[in-house]
Design a protein around this nucleic acid. Structure first.
Lengths: 333, 333
DNA sequence: TTGTATGCGTTATCAG
DNA sequence: CTGATAACGCATACAA
């Protein structure tokens, strides 16, 4: 592989000049620039990004930590981040935390040790204090889908409380009052906020929150099955089921049908996130849209603006969920 | 950040010795080793991975190119690769090709320019010649889910032809003979092989292949809708529908129900890939299992063995699909 | 506008 | 077993 040195001798200029045309920041006369580019072309020269990084103290890479690499939610998020960053020639180093504290911390250490210029985190298990402390380090840290007040400028988050509220409100306005709720793991802030919104809606309509119609699921399909099974066994009647995400809703739908429910007639179900597959459940899932792809783009823009000093970028830190009405919710009789 | 130099002075040894204990390859006396590790601890020293890379000509990173970051198929694949590599302290740089030739080539260039120690590709648009040529370069190249004979040692692939055969055979053995087929884009080798398997099964049972019951879809949900719509409009009767992947199958299921079909009574449907969501369609999708997560692990192992010279690794280059029987296929009347 | 000199933090090749 | 010392390929003050 040709080096900058060979280019410089072939072009008959100095190392520094070649470096200047590569980074075209400083002024170089058109003539010498031409000589250099010709030499680069002739030698098929490619800058060594590692050497560039060592000399400039910049790697042009941003680290991403997600809970899982699979799953529709993270897929959309990563796609948003990567496509935005790629346009600016930055690359992403992706690792996983599996929603476990140790593994999340380990992943963060890993990314930092890799000299990422910034890291974007979707962490669920580590606590706020840890994150606040982390932000004091040398590597800029950004949070996806999580709001920590002390570092709010570094957060791109969804108003999950509002989403939870909207879901429940829409159910209530269809005339339901016996409402079961399958929450996400309560150590996850998303899940907690969605539940809070649910409770606010109940309160607003003077519907008491029932412990027997509450179940904490795992945000996966199994959580939906388990939750619904739990409610059925409790023998307390309900006409609507709210799931804190679409995976659990689809699990619940599957289980409900196995138990002989006619859907949506005998049970209305609503989800949260609007993953692609929610259009293909039967009945088609009514849900809350979570613009996670957009949020991914925005997190990337935040990095571009703060870390790479790009101009004319406007940041929206908070996103709003919206109700997507499909077929899985009908009026209570 | 402390450097190796500071560690050496604090420990009272030379640079070289510190480097030796970091990489613990060469022998160092226990005493000096202890002094060095103590000094490292005291200074909270972390090796600079960029400098290591420049000096050693190894980045400990492997590039991955997938068509899309979202989607259940790629998610499972990436998860397999990443988790395997992460165990050995290697990291993944992920980029996308969107099944378009130019973008795939661009992504490959990008990964190579990043000095990846190896790259794992899931490419669909570039041709075999390009890949063969690529393998002659300095960066080792591995292919996921694609078989190119000339570089078969670098391929981890599924026997898609067999999968296509199994799907069709299982349908035929349920007594169906009027069978519609929605293929994937025929420039993708997976799609082509699955179709070939389909045709082999038809031939074996003396069922003629019908052009009017063939449709080339896009491997997405829409492909399933469009294909089924096409068949319905053609007015040629059919009792079973084979889709070349699960996304199209779920799209077809949704569309079929919208058109008033009673499933699976009036139409049997089978998919391919066994994505997680295939358990949650209604009826639950009968499909062909594609062990893509396992294949991801294997691709990573191949890199570990060839590029990182790890011992005792056994490689399986070819994987076999299997039939997963659920509820979407029933006997023809 | 261009060139010189030095540093970035390691690894690796020699001797000793 | 340990220590000098030269790469690695480039960026960047500082001069000219």
């Amino acid at each position: 592989m040709a080096t900058i040195y060979e280019v410089s001798t072939l072009a008959g200029v100095s190392l520094a000049t070649v470096s200047r045309v590569i980074n075209n920041n400083s002024r170089v006369s058109d003539k010498t620039r031409q000589k250099v580019t010709d030499a680069m072309a002739e030698l098929d020269y490619r800058p060594n990004s590692i050497a560039q990084s060592l000399a400039s103290n910049r790697t042009n890479s941003v680290g991403i930590l997600v809970s899982e690499l699979h799953g529709p939610f993270f897929g959309q998020m990563m796609a948003g981040i990567e496509s935005e960053l790629r346009l600016s020639g930055k690359h992403v180093i992706i690792t996983t935390g599996h929603s476990e504290e140790e593994r999340e911390k380990d992943g963060i250490e890993f990314l930092i040790s890799r000299n990422c210029d910034a890291i974007i985190l979707h962490v669920e298990a580590v606590n706020d204090e840890y994150l606040i402390e982390l932000c004091k380090g040398n590597t800029p840290v950004y949070l996806m889908s999580r709001y920590v007040a002390a570092i709010s400028e570094n957060c791109i988050s969804l108003n999950n409380e509002l989403g939870g509220y909207l879901a429940t409100k829409s159910i209530i306005e269809q005339g339901h009052s016996a409402i079961a709720y399958i929450a996400g793991p309560q150590f996850k802030s998303d899940a907690k906020c969605r539940l809070a919104g649910h409770k606010r809606a109940l309160t607003e309509y003077n519907i008491p929150f029932s412990d027997t119609l509450y179940f904490e699921g795992d945000f996966k399909e199994t959580g939906g099955c388990d939750g619904l099974e739990h409610f059925i066994n409790s023998n307390k009647p309900f006409t609507a089921l709210i799931c804190a995400n679409d995976e659990m809703a689809s699990g619940a739908i599957t289980y409900a049908r196995e138990q002989g429910f006619s859907l949506p007639d005998e049970l209305s179900i609503i989800g949260f996130d609007n993953i692609i597959f929610s259009q293909h459940t039967y009945p088609k899932l009514t849900t809350i849209d979570n613009p996670v792809n957009l949020m991914g783009h925005m997190a990337a823009k935040l990095v571009l603006k703060n870390t790479y000093k790009q101009k004319n970028i406007n940041i929206t830190h908070s996103f709003e969920p919206t109700l997507i009405t499909r077929d899985s919710v009908i009026s209570a009789v």
